[in-house]
Design a protein around this nucleic acid. Structure first.
Lengths: 393, 393
DNA sequence: TTGACATTGTTCGTTTCTGTTCGAGTGCGT
DNA sequence: ACGCACTCGAACAGAAACGAACAATGTCAA
């Protein structure tokens, strides 16, 4: 077969491997050989190549991120004579959803920069955020803080002001200073969720969908920008939110989920909604599952794009998804913080936004691949193909 | 004309190849030879040419977008003395105001990164911007573009779309993609002028000024965010723009300038306006000069903060000013572009905003820090005063 | 027209990539 | 100890891709 655009050449396989490593921290030969559709021997050869370059560390059965214990090749980065020049405290609101990848990226960047990350888990709650950060400050020798705190509400604002006043540099991670809060020293790295959602919506629009609904988990900080973008795109298309779906994706879970999703499907029928953006992807998987159970064909009867890409590839069919560059957020955050520590106040404050990419799978366009990719492909593909685009249109 | 090193057809083929690469991320020799109707050998020759220029990554069987794993060019580059790995084209709208420092920062960063910058001056005009950028594209061996184009209006939007579609990476410099224009590949570095203006206004507010006016050069792209911030801060202070000054600073120049400035002073008296933000600083110098001529004491009778800091230190008294981090804008732009060239498409799109700093001199607070403040410009970074964070409304 | 030059196509021996096979090594439970 | 399950990698082989050399074609100027 020649249609697999995902990884035709060895370089692409290796990039895919590294990407997987960034996400999971480890890969197995077996997994990869299935994922990429090549023999295990080939995967081993790739791993050996990369290990020889010092980019990864070989382990029995697979590979991991380059480890400090790996002495096989002189590490490409002069981690510097001084091994841990800086100690960075990091506080994240969750240790099992979304944030592990950010932490991973931060860890890797820290190793590169000769720094050490001390991690503390917290909650989506300003008071606890502050407690955890205070604990880090009380730890001797912490040079800077990476924090993904609650920024909304009076308590969030107060927390931001407190962070702004700390004696050591602080980089907001996957957060921005809230509007209306005066900050003069905070820096930030965050994903441009609004733009990500816009990309997904325009992709659906380009696939011919006129009426596009939204299921977003209202409790998440991500939902805000996503929903705002959705409303803006609707406005561009000359539509009213009331004419389609705008519900809370959290309801796709729990005892009443079946009834809820039935209601959504019913409303899709009534309003002529043919596409949905679902946030987060766990709920998208649930929802697509439900569609299949009810005989609603995806994407023919209803196209679905997930916002976030933790499990979207496991959906049946595999779900197209917007993938925030999580590990990069962590990486850039560490780089900003280390640069601040090295260069001091002469360096202007940085605010970085990173854009998500849209992973087109099978749930958004018939045939599994966008009409945007006009290629005479032999349609014979039993293995799910993944196409990565830097956006749509 | 016979001067071209490569034939017209060869160029077209290569453009087509890059185009295909942009869509798919990879091309195979076989596919391409069929698609273009030429022999495989010819395609290989094209691929080798482009790879030698560092524009793509050669792989067995075809080519991919430049990959971080591609070590071929990074190692050796025959001819160029060995160290200019990349050639970056830069187009700026002015060569005598504001932009020289940005260009400087870019130049320095380029040297650091082993790159070379080719500069072209243009105008504040979309059509000419495009002409100049096209000229750079026609220059053989340009790997990426730094541009500070016109982004407003239909022509600006069209220009952005065109930039977004170029086969080589583009970093907008001191510009952002306009709202409402769909871009999927542009990156950007810009100053957060809004935040800068906010800092100046809050500084004046903290110094006790209740009613603060604005003189902004309406023709400048910077004026937009500055004025928006000003209006927002006024709103926070519970005031109306109409109750104070909001005029065009351009009128401080030219034959009728004296009359204009007298009118402004008169209106300040009438409305009880005790402070002004003036953009740009040249006009601020003129205005302060006029105040002194008319016996209006600065800062006692009227406080002035300039937006921008090219000549503000030459004012009598020295004028407090918001200083955009110009050379940093150039530096970060080059860093983004080089990183994109090195790491390829796996790197997410970056949008960076840098914050200006407020240089407090003698025109905004009585008893400011006179003589030593304007001696060594770089040293002033440490003199920057923080804006009060409490008590505003 | 002719000759110099550039570009493209063809041939064919060489190289690269990948899958398969199979013996060796490792850890684990019985 | 033993077998078992697993992984690893050397060795081989087929297919495909590569590129040097040469041939063919087209372009331009004298």
């Amino acid at each position: 077969m020649s249609g697999a655009a995902a990884s035709r050449f060895s370089v692409q396989r290796k990039e895919r491997l590294l990407e997987q490593l960034r996400v999971d921290g480890a890969v197995s030969v077996r997994e990869l050989s299935e994922l990429l559709g090549v023999s295990e021997m080939t995967v081993r050869r790739d791993i050996n190549d990369l290990a020889r370059q010092g980019l990864i560390t070989r382990v029995h059965g697979g590979a991991t991120l380059r480890s400090a214990l790996d002495r096989t090749v002189a590490g490409r980065e002069p981690g510097d004579g001084g091994f841990n020049r800086y100690t960075l405290g990091m506080v994240v609101p969750s240790l099992d959803y979304y944030w592990p990848q950010i932490v991973n990226g931060a860890r890797m960047a820290a190793v590169q920069a000769g720094a050490r990350v001390i991690l503390r888990g917290s909650m989506y709650d300003a008071r606890d955020n502050r407690r955890q950060i205070q604990a880090l400050l009380d730890t001797a020798g912490v040079h800077g803080i990476l924090a993904g705190p609650e920024t909304a509400g009076p308590e969030g604002h107060e927390l931001l002001r407190w962070l702004d006043s700390l004696p050591i540099p602080v980089v907001l991670t996957e957060r921005r200073p809230a509007r209306g809060v005066i900050t003069t020293r905070l820096e930030s790295v965050s994903t441009d969720h609004g733009h990500g959602a816009e990309g997904a919506l325009l992709h659906l629009r380009a696939a011919g969908h006129e009426r596009i609904g939204l299921l977003a988990a209202r409790t998440s900080p991500t939902a805000g920008p996503v929903r705002r973008s959705w409303m803006e795109v609707l406005r561009l298309l000359g539509q009213e939110p009331a004419q389609t779906i705008d519900d809370d994706a959290n309801d796709c879970d729990g005892p009443k989920s079946a009834a809820f999703m039935d209601t959504v499907l019913e409303r899709c029928r009534k309003t002529g909604t043919t596409a949905l953006l679902v946030h987060p992807d766990r709920q998208a998987v649930r929802f697509v599952q439900h569609c299949v159970d009810r005989g609603v064909r995806v994407p023919d009867d209803l196209a679905v794009v997930a916002y976030d890409d933790e499990v979207a590839h496991l959906g049946q069919p595999a779900i197209s998804a917007v993938r925030p560059p999580k590990s990069w957020v962590g990486k850039v955050a560490v780089e900003l913080l280390v640069a601040r520590l090295e260069e001091g106040a002469a360096r202007p404050l940085h605010h970085v936004q990173l854009e998500p990419e849209l992973i087109v799978r099978d749930s958004s366009v018939p045939g599994g691949r966008g009409a945007d990719a006009d290629r005479a492909a032999p349609a014979e593909a039993s293995v799910t193909t993944e196409v990565t685009t830097k956006g749509t249109v």
